[in-house]
Design a protein around this nucleic acid. Structure first.
Length: 455
RNA sequence: GAAGGCGUAGCUCAGUCGGUAGAGCAACGGACUUUUAAUCCGUAGGUCGAGGGUUCGAGCCCCUCCGCCUUCACCA
């Protein structure tokens, strides 16, 4: 609430949260001509001493910035043309005891904004705008997938074994059963069990947890969408991904050309599809299957082809590992996209089916936009014997206390009852929202990101 | 984990060469009947992130620590 007082006549601007979405023009020089869609708007209220009576006038004298006020009156326009409620009755609804931020400068410091998100929503129009867009994107994903015949499910967050990805889990404990439990790091293994169970088009949108570092692109809890389609493969996943994300872009109501930083990204389909090996050759300059050439090229991109443990070179890195490090350094930044990078070196993808006729290539793609991995999809491995072997290989070097070091025997048993061949897709919702709302930090697309406790 | 930047009133920010701690908004008191962030007059508000050092004297210089931001590293 802004207040301009004038003797026996006051003008207030109150924020109206009627729940109805409207277009609102942003005020101020910086936003001239801009509109956002929101459910909050400001409307002016005029309060005259004679109109609101003695108690109403007394109340008016006591109002502070941030108070909640009910107004009955007549809608009209002032002589300057501003839409205004001419109040004849005031109802006091809530008191602000804490001083609010500067009504013009708003909130500048990131930490203050994050620790007072309720104020940030009021004083930083972009925060509310991004929040509404996030909700709309998630709703669009549900509508789109439901329309394609997918079934949304809920699977456990607490796992006895945290599998489906390579990440450190959060650990907790169940008292009655007296067992350790982990918060999930992926949705994959339960959704695949459902494939076995005959739910042939299945998805989940849910929170996953990884006990790792925090950065502009990482929050310890974040939202994943994973879907699995029986009798699909990574090619069908590309078509689905393209349709899904274009639907999200369209849902935001603007153009299919979206600004992100200094780049404009064109989401108009069809999107480029590029083979991993071709991109590698183009940007690194050597054939990724040429082991000598790859090894020789590594130092040019600042990559050490030796494994370094505590500053000792203890051996040669695996060929596919060097290839991918080169890819990350030399190629990723160039992928403004959207571009599907497909056909990955098999060594990088233990859970992926090999290409028919080429065991060195995995049927996988990642969708890159502006150098960021936005989606990851496979033709899923459905052979229980191969799956068990790759699990064992993957776990071989890990320390015992690492939860990843435990084999999910139940999952293997499920596969042994026959999982249909399937395409699978994972999308990091937070990063998708970042991209579609031109936001540089994940902390601004999550309402309450994890912060170090105060003091 | 490394480097750089920042930390001053509830908020947004000044603070020069090392010389008494500042402004606007918000709050409080008063005046005012047509305003578009900011009417006028007045009042109050501070462990200058914390601790140590140099100095006659430190918001400012030096050291240590804490927090946040940025970049890099790590991490699917």
């Amino acid at each position: 609430m802004l207040r301009r007082t004038g003797g026996k006549l006051h003008f207030l601007e109150i924020r109206d949260w009627s729940g109805q979405k409207i277009k609102r023009a942003l005020k101020g020089k910086d936003h001239a001509g801009e509109e956002i869609e929101t459910w909050s708007s400001y409307i002016q209220v005029m309060i005259g001493q004679q109109q609101v009576g003695e108690t109403g006038w007394k109340l008016t004298q006591e109002l502070d910035l941030g108070d909640l006020l009910g107004v009955d009156g007549t809608l009209g326009k002032t002589k300057t043309g501003e839409l205004t409620i001419f109040a004849d009755k005031l109802t006091f609804l809530g008191k602000s005891l804490q001083p609010h931020p500067d009504k013009h400068s708003g909130m500048q410091e990131m930490e203050f904004r994050l620790r007072h998100r309720y104020l940030d929503l009021i004083y930083t129009p972009d925060t509310l705008d991004r929040t509404l867009k996030r909700i709309k994107i998630i709703k669009t994903i549900r509508n789109y997938l439901d329309g394609q015949g997918f079934v949304e499910v809920e699977t456990p967050v607490l796992h006895a074994i945290a599998g489906g990805a390579a990440a450190k889990p959060f650990k907790t404990h169940h008292n009655a059963l007296d067992i350790p439990l982990f918060q999930r790091i992926a949705l994959e293994l339960h959704l695949k069990r459902l494939l076995v169970g005959g739910i042939e088009k299945v998805y989940e949108i849910g929170r996953v947890f990884r006990n790792e570092g925090i950065s502009q692109r990482h929050n310890p809890e974040f939202t994943m969408m994973e879907l699995y389609q029986a009798y699909g493969d990574y090619r069908s996943m590309m078509d689905l991904t393209e349709g899904l994300i274009v639907a999200c872009v369209d849902a935001l109501g603007g153009s299919r050309q979206l600004q992100y930083g200094e780049h404009t990204v064109n989401f108009e389909p069809p999107w480029q599809r590029a083979c991993y090996a071709d991109l590698f050759r183009e940007h690194v300059g050597v054939d990724m299957n040429d082991r000598e050439a790859v090894r020789a090229a590594a130092p040019k991109f600042g990559i050490n082809p030796k494994v370094v443990v505590e500053k000792q070179e203890v051996g040669d890195k695996d060929h596919d590992v060097i290839v991918h490090e080169l890819f990350e350094h030399a190629v990723e930044d160039k992928l403004i996209g959207p571009v599907f990078v497909h056909d990955y070196p098999a060594g990088l993808c233990p859970l992926t089916k090999r290409q028919r006729g080429n065991p060195n290539i995995a049927e996988r793609f990642e969708l890159y936009v502006r150098g960021m991995e936005l989606a990851n999809a496979y033709t899923e491995l459905n052979d229980p014997i191969t799956q068990e072997q790759t699990f064992r290989q993957q776990l071989a070097g890990l320390p015992e206390e690492d939860s990843m070091a435990k084999m999910d025997e139940d999952f293997i048993r499920a596969l042994r009852h026959a999982m249909p061949p399937a395409g699978g897709l994972g999308v990091g919702i937070d990063r998708l929202v970042m991209l579609l709302t031109n936001t540089t930090t994940i902390r601004d697309v999550i309402l309450f990101p994890l912060l170090r406790p105060e003091k």
